[in-house]
Amino acid sequence: MSDKGGKGGKSALKSPASKGKDSKGRKVQFDSEDMFDEKFETNGNGNGKSNGKDGTPFAKGKGGKGDKGGSSKKEPPPLLLKVEEELPENAKCLMNCEAAQILQGIQDHMVLLSKDPTIKIPSSFDRALQYANTGNFYTNPHSVRQTLETLKKQDVSDGEICLIANTGIESTKKAFALIPSLKAKKSKVKESLGTALTELNKLKTVTESTIVLD
């Protein structure tokens, strides 16, 4: 409608222009929506500081009021780890200690094998190796995997298992706090998780004592 006629020209300047903004705005929001979404979730955990900010991406104008009221009432759902849903089937989660072992092996080989000067180890490799080594609490990934595999019977996913190993969690309380998806299985998991964490702690202390002895 507004495309027609010269009359509409002046008045149309306002309305289509604002529409135009809307459509441009949509593009920008599409990218940032995710972030705002996330901010919304997290800020809900703390104070309702960003009510105004959060209101805007969801519903413009009218929604603002409702959102303000809503955000204070609504308990935001905890951010659950959904590794399996987002990855292809043939992917296997690796614990940092496993990744560190693989990457260290590759680096050792590269020093020997890379006669071709055009092949350079990318910086992301070094960073990843450094990260894997920093977050590596165990020297024997096999026994860590064996210990945590027992939790699979209680429906603990691969992603959760890796997260437990990567964070070096010592207590079940900490595990439930850091990995909210475990809370749903709390009654089922608690006992075996406690046992597994005790076992893991033993593996950790063995590692530390060997380092001291060395």
Binding site: L79, L81, E86, L87, A128, T167
Partner: peptide
């Protein structure tokens, strides 16, 4: 290496 929402 990929980060996930909810990952520590």
């Amino acid at each position: 290496f990929r980060p996930f929402k909810g990952e520590i």
